[in-house]
Protein backbone atom coordinates (compact mmCIF):
# COMPACT_ATOMS: atom_id res chain seq x y z
CA UNK A 1 0.00 0.00 0.00
CA UNK A 2 2.44 2.69 -1.11
CA UNK A 3 1.30 6.04 -2.29
CA UNK A 4 4.61 7.39 -3.54
CA UNK A 5 5.39 8.02 -7.18
CA UNK A 6 7.33 5.47 -9.20
CA UNK A 7 4.34 3.14 -9.42
CA UNK A 8 1.68 2.85 -12.12
CA UNK A 9 2.65 3.87 -15.61
CA UNK A 10 5.99 5.67 -15.69
CA UNK A 11 8.98 3.33 -15.45
CA UNK A 12 9.91 2.68 -11.86
CA UNK A 13 13.35 1.60 -10.82
CA UNK A 14 15.16 -0.87 -13.00
CA UNK A 15 14.30 -4.54 -12.55
CA UNK A 16 15.85 -7.57 -14.18
CA UNK A 17 12.51 -8.87 -15.48
CA UNK A 18 11.33 -5.50 -16.70
CA UNK A 19 8.21 -6.02 -14.64
CA UNK A 20 7.17 -3.98 -11.64
CA UNK A 21 8.49 -5.77 -8.57
CA UNK A 22 5.45 -5.06 -6.41
CA UNK A 23 3.16 -6.62 -8.96
CA UNK A 24 5.45 -9.60 -9.26
CA UNK A 25 5.48 -9.97 -5.51
CA UNK A 26 1.69 -9.86 -5.37
CA UNK A 27 1.46 -12.69 -7.90
CA UNK A 28 4.03 -14.76 -6.04
CA UNK A 29 2.09 -14.17 -2.84
CA UNK A 30 -1.22 -15.17 -4.48
CA UNK A 31 0.48 -18.29 -5.76
CA UNK A 32 1.52 -19.15 -2.23
CA UNK A 33 -1.93 -18.33 -0.88
CA UNK A 34 -3.27 -20.88 -3.38
CA UNK A 35 -1.21 -23.50 -1.62
CA UNK A 36 -2.45 -22.31 1.75
CA UNK A 37 -6.07 -22.74 0.77
CA UNK A 38 -5.09 -25.98 -0.94
CA UNK A 39 -4.12 -27.43 2.42
CA UNK A 40 -7.42 -26.39 3.98
CA UNK A 41 -9.40 -27.75 1.03
CA UNK A 42 -7.42 -31.00 1.14
CA UNK A 43 -8.21 -31.40 4.81
CA UNK A 44 -11.88 -30.78 4.18
CA UNK A 45 -11.98 -33.31 1.34
CA UNK A 46 -9.99 -35.92 3.21
CA UNK A 47 -12.38 -35.84 6.15
CA UNK A 48 -15.52 -35.46 4.09
CA UNK A 49 -18.16 -38.00 5.04
CA UNK A 50 -16.08 -39.25 7.97
CA UNK A 51 -17.80 -37.39 10.78
CA UNK A 52 -18.86 -39.78 13.49
CA UNK A 53 -21.51 -37.53 14.99
CA UNK A 54 -23.83 -34.95 13.45
CA UNK A 55 -24.78 -32.38 12.40
CA UNK A 56 -23.83 -33.38 8.89
CA UNK A 57 -23.57 -31.16 5.83
CA UNK A 58 -26.94 -32.27 4.54
CA UNK A 59 -28.55 -31.06 7.74
CA UNK A 60 -27.20 -27.54 7.60
CA UNK A 61 -25.98 -26.38 4.19
CA UNK A 62 -28.35 -24.05 2.42
CA UNK A 63 -27.63 -23.88 -1.30
CA UNK A 64 -29.91 -21.01 -2.32
CA UNK A 65 -28.58 -18.87 0.50
CA UNK A 66 -24.98 -19.56 -0.38
CA UNK A 67 -25.66 -19.03 -4.07
CA UNK A 68 -26.78 -15.50 -3.28
CA UNK A 69 -23.66 -14.77 -1.26
CA UNK A 70 -21.49 -16.25 -4.02
CA UNK A 71 -23.22 -13.99 -6.48
CA UNK A 72 -22.61 -10.99 -4.21
CA UNK A 73 -18.89 -11.72 -4.09
CA UNK A 74 -18.76 -12.23 -7.83
CA UNK A 75 -20.36 -8.83 -8.37
CA UNK A 76 -17.88 -7.28 -5.96
CA UNK A 77 -15.15 -8.44 -8.33
CA UNK A 78 -16.88 -6.55 -11.09
CA UNK A 79 -17.12 -3.37 -9.05
CA UNK A 80 -13.46 -3.77 -8.07
CA UNK A 81 -12.29 -3.93 -11.67
CA UNK A 82 -14.55 -0.99 -12.49
CA UNK A 83 -12.83 0.97 -9.71
CA UNK A 84 -9.47 0.14 -11.26
CA UNK A 85 -10.73 1.08 -14.67
CA UNK A 86 -11.89 4.42 -13.30
CA UNK A 87 -8.58 5.40 -11.73
CA UNK A 88 -6.69 4.28 -14.82
CA UNK A 89 -8.70 6.88 -16.68
CA UNK A 90 -8.04 9.42 -13.95
CA UNK A 91 -11.63 9.33 -12.72
CA UNK A 92 -11.20 9.82 -8.98
CA UNK A 93 -14.89 10.08 -8.24
CA UNK A 94 -15.59 6.86 -10.14
CA UNK A 95 -12.82 5.17 -8.18
CA UNK A 96 -14.40 6.17 -4.89
CA UNK A 97 -17.89 5.11 -5.90
CA UNK A 98 -16.82 1.68 -7.13
CA UNK A 99 -14.42 1.15 -4.22
CA UNK A 100 -17.13 1.85 -1.68
CA UNK A 101 -19.52 -0.40 -3.59
CA UNK A 102 -16.95 -3.18 -3.49
CA UNK A 103 -16.51 -2.65 0.24
CA UNK A 104 -20.27 -2.71 0.68
CA UNK A 105 -20.65 -5.95 -1.24
CA UNK A 106 -17.73 -7.45 0.68
CA UNK A 107 -19.39 -6.54 3.94
CA UNK A 108 -22.66 -8.03 2.75
CA UNK A 109 -20.79 -11.26 2.03
CA UNK A 110 -19.15 -11.17 5.45
CA UNK A 111 -22.47 -10.48 7.11
CA UNK A 112 -23.90 -13.47 5.30
CA UNK A 113 -21.03 -15.61 6.53
CA UNK A 114 -21.51 -14.45 10.10
CA UNK A 115 -25.21 -15.21 9.88
CA UNK A 116 -24.52 -18.64 8.44
CA UNK A 117 -21.93 -19.41 11.10
CA UNK A 118 -24.21 -18.39 13.97
CA UNK A 119 -26.99 -20.42 12.41
CA UNK A 120 -24.73 -23.47 12.29
CA UNK A 121 -23.59 -22.95 15.87
CA UNK A 122 -27.18 -22.64 17.07
CA UNK A 123 -27.92 -25.94 15.38
CA UNK A 124 -25.11 -27.64 17.19
CA UNK A 125 -22.17 -27.37 14.80
CA UNK A 126 -19.10 -25.77 16.27
CA UNK A 127 -15.45 -26.08 15.36
CA UNK A 128 -15.11 -28.77 18.01
CA UNK A 129 -18.26 -30.80 17.29
CA UNK A 130 -17.06 -33.13 14.57
CA UNK A 131 -14.79 -33.38 11.55
CA UNK A 132 -17.22 -31.47 9.38
CA UNK A 133 -17.34 -28.62 11.87
CA UNK A 134 -13.56 -28.42 12.22
CA UNK A 135 -12.75 -28.56 8.55
CA UNK A 136 -15.66 -26.38 7.45
CA UNK A 137 -15.02 -23.59 9.91
CA UNK A 138 -11.26 -23.72 9.29
CA UNK A 139 -11.71 -23.37 5.55
CA UNK A 140 -14.52 -20.83 5.43
CA UNK A 141 -13.20 -19.04 8.49
CA UNK A 142 -9.82 -18.39 6.90
CA UNK A 143 -11.55 -17.31 3.72
CA UNK A 144 -13.65 -14.89 5.72
CA UNK A 145 -10.50 -13.60 7.36
CA UNK A 146 -9.00 -12.99 3.93
CA UNK A 147 -12.13 -11.08 2.90
CA UNK A 148 -11.94 -9.00 6.08
CA UNK A 149 -8.34 -8.07 5.40
CA UNK A 150 -9.39 -7.16 1.87
CA UNK A 151 -12.19 -4.95 3.13
CA UNK A 152 -9.80 -3.14 5.48
CA UNK A 153 -7.35 -2.72 2.60
CA UNK A 154 -10.00 -1.30 0.28
CA UNK A 155 -11.29 1.04 3.00
CA UNK A 156 -7.75 2.28 3.58
CA UNK A 157 -7.39 2.82 -0.14
CA UNK A 158 -10.66 4.74 -0.24
CA UNK A 159 -9.52 6.82 2.72
CA UNK A 160 -6.22 7.53 1.01
CA UNK A 161 -8.06 8.71 -2.08
CA UNK A 162 -9.54 11.53 -0.02
CA UNK A 163 -6.02 12.60 0.96
CA UNK A 164 -4.99 12.82 -2.68
CA UNK A 165 -2.67 9.85 -2.36
CA UNK A 166 -4.39 7.82 -5.08
CA UNK A 167 -3.83 9.16 -8.58
CA UNK A 168 -3.78 7.97 -12.15
CA UNK A 169 0.01 7.66 -11.97
CA UNK A 170 -0.23 5.47 -8.90
CA UNK A 171 -3.02 3.24 -10.14
CA UNK A 172 -0.79 0.25 -9.42
CA UNK A 173 -1.82 0.52 -5.78
CA UNK A 174 -5.46 -0.04 -6.75
CA UNK A 175 -4.46 -2.77 -9.18
CA UNK A 176 -2.64 -4.66 -6.44
CA UNK A 177 -5.61 -4.41 -4.10
CA UNK A 178 -7.75 -5.61 -6.98
CA UNK A 179 -5.57 -8.65 -7.58
CA UNK A 180 -5.95 -9.64 -3.95
CA UNK A 181 -9.69 -9.09 -4.04
CA UNK A 182 -10.18 -11.13 -7.22
CA UNK A 183 -8.10 -13.91 -5.71
CA UNK A 184 -10.34 -14.00 -2.66
CA UNK A 185 -13.32 -14.25 -5.02
CA UNK A 186 -11.67 -17.05 -6.98
CA UNK A 187 -11.09 -19.01 -3.78
CA UNK A 188 -14.76 -18.65 -2.94
CA UNK A 189 -15.67 -20.01 -6.38
CA UNK A 190 -13.69 -23.11 -5.50
CA UNK A 191 -15.07 -23.40 -1.97
CA UNK A 192 -18.63 -22.90 -3.17
CA UNK A 193 -18.25 -25.79 -5.60
CA UNK A 194 -16.29 -28.14 -3.39
CA UNK A 195 -18.15 -27.64 -0.13
CA UNK A 196 -21.67 -26.67 -1.11
CA UNK A 197 -22.56 -27.74 -4.64
CA UNK A 198 -21.09 -31.19 -4.27
CA UNK A 199 -23.32 -31.86 -1.25
CA UNK A 200 -26.39 -30.40 -2.88
CA UNK A 201 -27.76 -33.62 -4.42
CA UNK A 202 -27.84 -35.11 -0.93
CA UNK A 203 -29.87 -32.24 0.44
CA UNK A 204 -33.45 -32.89 -0.37
Amino acid sequence: MSYAPAAGHPPAEHTTTGLNHRKLLMWVFLSSDCLFFGTLISTYLVYRGKSVVGPYPVDLLNIPYTTVSAFVLLMSSLTMVLALSAIQRGDLRGLRIWLFTTVLLGCVFLGGQVFEFTHFVQHGLTVKTNLFGSTFFALTGFHGLHVTVGVIWLLSLAGASFRGAVRQETSLDVELAGLYWHFVDIVWIVIFTVVYLVEAPNIV
Binding site: S2, Y3, A160
Partner: peptide, 8 residues
Protein backbone atom coordinates in the same frame (compact mmCIF):
# COMPACT_ATOMS: atom_id res chain seq x y z
CA UNK B 1 2.15 -0.49 4.51
CA UNK B 2 1.52 3.23 4.21
CA UNK B 3 5.24 3.99 3.95
CA UNK B 4 6.34 4.93 0.44
CA UNK B 5 8.10 2.21 -1.49
CA UNK B 6 11.07 4.41 -2.25
CA UNK B 7 12.76 7.31 -0.55
CA UNK B 8 12.27 10.66 -2.22
Amino acid sequence: SFEPAEAE
